[in-house]
Design a protein around this nucleic acid. Structure first.
Lengths: 133, 133
DNA sequence: TTAGAATTGTTATAATATAACAGCATGTAA
DNA sequence: TTACATGCTGTTATATTATAACAATTCTAA
């Protein structure tokens, strides 16, 4: 069985699922993940969703809400998913995480102005990427 | 039967469903809508989803992606859903559409910089509203 | 008045997500 | 050492969200 150290590591299922998402060039959906890890002994949706929930919680992956799909975090500035932004090509479906400190500062401060106690935001841009336009 | 003029109007089902969403103080989910319009002769999910799709397309409502729920558009500046932004209270679940020309200009121009041909964006802020914090 | 487009109604099913329960492994405290 | 708490796992069943596919009707424009 997997050894669990308090400080860091992912559990077996979490690691399997994170690796799959991290290696993928595109956002993966929960059931796509399930089909791809059944050979590794992960058989049922709750096992996938539990790992996904945890990975989202600790900021290793993000959920693309408009696609119900998951990508590995590529942005050390997102501060455990407090400030996420993505560009999504409507033609080829490529998703890129946007890393832009100015943008996240702008949006965080915008939020404060509006009287809300800020916890996090998620921004999704849609359009055509360089290749597709 | 409903008369259909090119210029404007909603069809019967579209109007029923729009009215329900517009009168609601909170985002409504598709099946909540379904339960609430069955007395009006709308019996099946596709009827609801078709009306929702159309209402989203023409900008009368928006989908809150993180909640799979729908709200009436309160923002004449969103330009048929090209530039949508919401604040979402994680405690009381209140959702408000943000109307801020500066914000949408900022985000539209940000997007252009990144080499993507801009079509639209959706921004969701999460936190605690004034009442809940 | 007729063809095309949009809308409606219906049944069935696909896709996404969670509830509920039982068991095991690890870390901590008595 | 035992006992308890916590977190992860495995499993079955089910809830929730969304669409496919087909037939019929209504509206609009020419």
């Amino acid at each position: 069985m997997t050894r669990m150290h308090k400080e860091n590591n992912l559990s077996k299922n979490q690691q399997i699922i994170f690796d799959l998402i991290d290696r993928s060039s595109e956002p993966l959906k929960a059931y796509t993940i399930l089909y791809n890890v059944q050979k590794k002994g992960i058989n049922a949706p709750p096992q996938v969703y539990r790992a996904l929930d945890k990975l989202v919680e600790i900021g290793k992956i993000h959920k693309i809400e408009s696609k119900n799909a998951f990508v590995a975090c590529k942005n050390s500035d997102c501060e455990i998913s407090k400030a996420t932004a993505f560009s999504i090509c409507e033609s080829c479906e490529v998703v890129d995480e946007i890393s832009d400190v100015k943008l996240s500062k702008y949006l965080s401060s915008f939020n404060h102005k509006k009287g809300m106690k800020f916890k996090r935001f998620n921004l999704e841009f849609f359009g055509l990427c360089k290749k597709c336009k």
